[in-house]
Design a protein around this nucleic acid. Structure first.
Length: 804
RNA sequence: GCCGGAGUGGCGAAACUGGUAGACGCACAGGACUUAAAAUCCUGCGGUAGCAAUACUGUAACGGUUCGACUCCGUUCUCCGGCACCA
């Protein structure tokens, strides 16, 4: 190295200590400046420690936070720990230590690693979801949900992970496997606490219009909520007093119904079947039960079912139609029963073919060719449909719904795929659900004054796997009295899922020590919503859906005022290992940030993480690539030779200053950090070529670089004689007029092909430009004998001659 | 199957509302400095042909619109992500 002054170890340490002593990043909401709330998805502190993927998002947000600070904002930028949950509990069981101790150790390690990057966190606001002073308020929110009828108990067939020995929410099941451990999910019938997220379905869809989130994330949430519009229609069951209610999105196909299907779990079947048919049903149910969800979906191609021997009457045709039971109809959606139209639904078509059920087309394709080997599910003309014949099928939809409503056969209806949130976990390391089961009063919430309901103080516990929480085996904790009537009562022994604590932490940060509520109203109203939120795309249908649900509930009970928690969301892409695979412990390809920090220091790793590629895209870790940004920072350091400074800037340099400020300012706002760094590299390469370095250009460079590489920037700033932090200085301004070049290179095309270039003044008149172009030897050659048909002149950009 | 997103040098990538494709960085090659190496500095670097000026060709493939297409339209292929019997 050509210098000996740049020692990142001392510089990093010096500035991190200084920032901490000066409380540079602590905010109180009383500065009088406009606020800006920058938030990272807080990490789950695992035993494995930080990997290089974590700091990508943190660095981006830190750049934004420092940029906003320099632009005159009071910036709230907090960090904390999402520390309850299975991995820690499993780790603790394995190591035979208490999860509380394991959690404390993991947090210690995470905090140490994160601090090495020199992020601008206000550490005085740190939160920890496992702290009783925190989970007191998580429990409080649960009590409020309970009091408002949004938390309820239900005996239900739920997703059960045999390896984690707990029930899971639908959102935690991926491809029929446990999101955490990959074990195949089983079904288990358990009494569960559920949260009524479904009553917020409509608002969860509509309010996506209020936020600046990536479109794909919005779409994913919309699809997950899965709204569909159709009708509920009653079909009378022959020889009974009963009606069978079905949901359909295709009322236009009602005349084509040739059979009905009920889900095997449908309770109606128990009411109406007896004898031999009942036996057949039970046999079929056993067959279904023995299959996991995964196998059940694998049955896709080959549909199974049994006949019930019962018939319905089609309310529009008065024809008798048979009722079947088949597992391609789910109990959890709509009414658990469908009308089957094989001519216009592929699933019904497959089933009808297999069981020889008739297929009656009621919609004719516009080309008149009715397919016979598959269902026709597009729009066409109505046929075989009585008075509706001849009209377009999508117009018929509305007409038939109206008709059905007039005849009191059914009504218009909206259904969602979203299910209520299964909220109980049969594990130890989570917030205890603050409910007491009283012999007389039933489920009673624990009064607020008695919260937090702490986890029992035990040395060791085991996960039962029976569907009971380990807490159930602690009678001294379980047995209690009813807060309402004083009778004997038992505590709820299930705990909350990991997603509970993370569903409101962004509120706690605004007032982390508040003892009178989840945060004071002033703090909430001052800081919320979060202005920019950063995290991985994998949380779209879990965390981000749950948070929005809780937020809307908190809005309904007057705790928060804004409709959405996160005004702007940006996703970081994953960091892939050098071998092109996902970084994982088992593959041994994980890059530990500690090693990179030891070798290069905080500024280099920060810069590299941002330079790897576009922020929201997956990027591959490349050890060689780090050298490039390392060289860049050394080059910056070398520019600051006090013997080579001059006051004034030449015109060219001055233009580049303005151009660079413009580009970096714009790119930070747009999260285009890689191109911002590239612009600074161009700037530095230019300064490097100058014999004498203009002082004002160097100072501006430092300001631009400071959010990216804060340590080295502060050090050089101080060397320049500045006495207060560079982050207290103003972000440089640019003048668009001064970005303009006086001389420009104009490319000349002939018939759209690049042929020549000419250097002209930026202010050149069109007539003069034409002359200059025609004077070019090459242009003359290419025109030759041909005639100029058209001049296309794009000012400052190019000239194109059309010749014939 | 359905819904998103993406395909650009040896590699990571850039290109504003259609206007010089490959900025910036990595790797590589040549040179300077050095006893030598590392570091640093300078030069070159999509492909084909040519000593060269230069020409042709080139942004997954094919076709279209346009004076002009990585960018717009159509068809196809590949990869990634999400959903998946949701009636």
């Amino acid at each position: 190295m050509s210098n000996d002054g740049f020692n990142f170890e001392t510089i990093d340490k010096k500035w991190q200590e200084k920032w901490e002593n000066e409380k540079l990043y602590q905010v109180d909401g009383e500065s009088g400046k406009p606020k800006y709330y920058v938030l990272d998805m807080f990490p789950y502190p695992s035993a494995a420690g930080l990997h290089v993927g974590h700091p990508e998002g943190y660095t981006a947000n830190d750049i934004l936070a420092r940029f906003k600070m320099m632009n005159g904002y009071e910036v709230l930028h907090p960090m904390g720990w999402d520390a309850f949950g299975l991995p820690t509990e499993n780790y603790a069981l394995k190591m035979k230590i208490h999860p509380e101790i394991a959690t404390a150790e993991n947090i210690l390690n995470f905090r140490r690693q994160i601090k090495r990057f020199g992020f601008s966190y206000d550490w005085s606001r740190e939160v920890n979801t496992t702290d009783p002073e925190y989970y007191k308020w998580t429990q409080w929110i649960f009590v409020k949900l309970f009091e408002n009828g949004l938390a309820y108990e239900k005996q239900a067939l739920i997703n059960w992970c045999p390896s984690c020995k707990t029930g899971l929410a639908n959102e935690e099941v991926v491809d029929g496997k446990c999101d955490r451990c990959g074990a195949k999910i089983e079904r288990k019938n358990l009494k569960q606490w559920m949260l009524r997220i479904t009553s917020y379905a409509e608002r969860l869809i509509n309010d996506l219009d209020l936020v600046d989130w990536p479109e794909d994330v919005k779409t994913m949430q919309k699809n997950w909520i899965g709204k569909s519009t159709g009708a509920l229609v009653n079909f009378h069951v022959k020889n009974t007093q009963e009606d069978l209610e079905i949901f359909t999105t295709r009322p236009d196909t009602i005349f084509g119904v040739t059979y009905m299907v009920m889900s095997p779990e449908h309770p109606f079947l128990d009411k109406v079947l007896s004898g031999q048919k009942k036996k057949e049903l039970n046999k079929y149910r056993e067959l279904i039960q023995s299959k996991s969800d995964l196998e059940r979906t694998e049955l896709n191609k080959d549909k199974t079912g049994i006949s019930t021997g019962l018939f319905c009457i089609n309310p529009l045709t008065n024809e008798d139609i048979p009722i079947f039971v088949a597992d391609y109809v789910m109990m959890g959606y709509g009414t658990g029963a469908i009308m089957a139209v094989p001519a216009h639904d592929q699933r019904d078509f497959d089933f009808a073919k297999k069981y020889n059920i008739s297929i009656v087309p009621v919609i004719e394709p516009f080309d008149g060719i009715v397919p016979t080997e598959e269902a026709f599910d597009a729009v066409g003309t109505m046929i075989n449909s009585g008075e509706f014949n001849g009209i377009k099928s999508d117009d018929a939809k509305e007409k038939i719904i109206s008709f059905i409503e007039e005849q009191k056969l059914g009504k218009k209806s909206i259904q969602y795929k979203l299910r209520d949130w299964i909220f109980s976990r049969q594990r130890f390391w989570g917030e205890p659900i603050p409910i007491v089961h009283c012999e007389k009063c039933g489920a009673v919430a624990i009064p607020v004054e008695e919260l937090p309901l702490k986890l029992p103080d035990v040395e060791f516990y085991e996960t039962s796997g029976t569907g009971e929480s380990p807490l159930a085996k602690m009678p001294e904790w379980v047995n209690t009295t009813c807060p309402k009537c004083g009778s004997k009562a038992k505590r709820e022994t299930n705990t909350m899922p990991q997603w509970a604590g993370s569903s409101w932490y962004y509120i706690r940060y605004t007032d982390p020590k508040c003892t009178t509520g989840i945060a004071s109203k002033e703090a909430i109203n001052y800081w919320l919503p979060v202005d920019t939120y950063i995290g991985g795309r994998e949380h779209t249908n879990l965390h981000l859906l749950y948070v929005r649900f809780w937020h809307k509930f908190l809005q309904d009970i007057g705790v928060v005022d804004c409709p959405e928690p996160f005004a702007r969301l940006r996703n970081q892409g994953m960091v892939i290992a050098e071998d092109g695979r996902k970084m994982s412990k088992s593959l041994g390809n994980v890059v530990n940030p500690d090693e990179v920090l030891d070798k290069y220091g905080a500024d280099v790793i920060r810069l590299y993480e941002m330079f790897m590629g576009p922020f929201n895209q997956e990027s591959v870790w490349n050890t060689k690539g780090i050298e490039g940004v390392n060289r860049f920072l050394y080059k910056v350091w070398d520019l600051f030779d006090p013997k080579l400074l001059i006051k004034c800037c030449d015109d060219e340099t001055n233009r580049l200053v303005h151009k660079t400020v413009k580009k970096v300012t714009h790119d930070i706002e747009e999260f285009s950090f890689n191109t911002a760094i590239s612009a600074m590299m161009i700037f530095v390469n230019h300064l490097h070529k100058l014999k004498m370095k203009p002082k004002n250009a160097l100072k501006i460079l430092l300001c631009l670089l400071a959010p990216f590489a804060p340590h080295i920037s502060e050090e050089l700033w101080e060397n320049f004689g500045e006495t207060s932090s560079i982050f207290k200085s103003k972000w440089p301004e640019f003048n668009s007029e001064l970005c303009k070049d006086t001389e420009i290179v104009v490319p000349i095309q002939i018939n759209g092909k690049m042929r020549d270039k000419v250097i002209v003044s930026a202010e050149i008149k069109e007539s003069e430009l034409k002359e200059r172009v025609l004077a070019r030897e090459k242009v003359k050659v290419f025109i030759g004998e041909k005639k100029i048909v058209k001049w296309i002149i794009i000012p400052l950009r190019l000239v194109n001659l059309v010749v014939k």
